[in-house]
Write a protein that binds this DNA or RNA. Structure first.
Length: 205
DNA sequence: CAGTGGATCGTCT
DNA sequence: GACGATCCACTGG
C-alpha cells in the first residue's frame, strides 16, 4: 500500500496533557493510531472515542480516586496507554490524558484500518474485511496487536529496547467539528446518571 | 434484523 | 465470589 509521507506528525506530550478530556476525545477523531510490533506496522484512523473524566465520573475506573494497581497509570501524566482486560477476553486501549494526579483517559472504540491490513486481518482471524473491521474497542486492540500487558507504555518515549511500539500521528485528516456526533457511552449502565453524559464521539464517514 | 446468552479471567471486595 | 468501558454465534420472525 502507498503511504503518504506528507503531513505526518507524531502527537507530542502537549497534546495529551491538556485538561479538557472531552476536547481531546474530539481531537483524536481523524488521528492515526499506529503500532509496530515485531516489525509489523499496522494503523488506522480513529473514528470513535469515549472520554472518561476521572474521579468525578462514575463510569471511570478512577471514579472517587480509586487508585489501584490496575488504574495507577491513569493517575500518571498524560501520554501513556491504559490497557485493561474486559470480560476476561478483550484488551481495551485508552490514552491517558491530563497532568499527573488527574486520571483522565480516552477509550479508542473504533478505527478505520490503513497500514498493514493483511497483518490486521490475520490477527483478527478473518480472511477478508467486512464493514465491522476495526469497529469496536476489543477489535481495535486485537487487530493492532495491543495487549493488556502493554498498559503503562509511553506513546511518546522510546522504551529500554529503544523503540516506541504504540503512537499517534496527525496525517492532516481534518474532521469538521460540525460532523462530530456525541452520544452517551456504551456499556456503562452501572454509572447511574453519568451513564447519560454525551461523552462518546464519532463522525459520519 | 433484534434479542439472547456463552466465553473467560483479572481485579477488587 | 461477583462482575465487567465486549464480541460473536445463534435464535426466531
Amino acid at each position: 500500500m502507498m503511504i503518504s509521507t506528507l503531513e505526518r506528525t507524531v502527537l507530542c506530550k502537549a497534546f495529551f496533557t491538556r485538561e479538557d478530556v472531552l476536547q481531546i476525545a474530539r481531537d483524536l477523531l481523524g488521528k492515526v493510531l499506529v503500532t509496530n510490533f515485531n516489525r509489523k506496522i499496522t494503523s488506522g484512523v480513529i473514528v470513535e472515542t469515549e472520554a472518561y473524566a476521572g474521579v468525578t465520573d462514575k463510569a471511570s475506573h478512577a471514579y472517587s480516586c480509586r487508585n489501584t494497581p490496575r488504574t495507577a497509570v491513569m493517575f500518571g501524566e498524560g501520554g501513556v496507554a491504559y490497557v485493561y482486560l474486559c470480560y476476561g477476553i478483550h484488551s481495551l486501549f485508552n490514552v491517558v490524558t491530563n497532568i499527573s494526579g488527574v486520571p483522565h483517559a480516552v477509550l479508542i472504540r473504533g478505527i478505520k484500518p490503513i497500514d498493514g491490513i493483511p497483518v490486521m486481518l490475520s490477527r483478527s482471524g478473518k480472511n477478508k474485511r467486512d464493514e465491522n473491521f476495526g469497529n469496536g474497542p476489543g477489535k481495535v486492540s486485537k487487530i493492532l496487536g495491543i495487549h493488556y500487558s502493554h498498559t503503562g507504555k509511553s506513546l511518546l518515549k522510546k522504551d529500554v529496547n529503544d523503540q516506541i511500539n504504540v503512537w499517534l500521528e496527525d496525517r492532516g485528516i481534518k474532521i469538521p467539528s460540525g460532523s462530530i456526533i456525541s452520544t452517551p457511552r456504551i456499556g456503562v449502565d452501572y454509572a447511574g446518571e453519568d451513564a447519560r453524559l454525551p461523552y462518546r464521539f464519532f463522525y459520519r464517514q
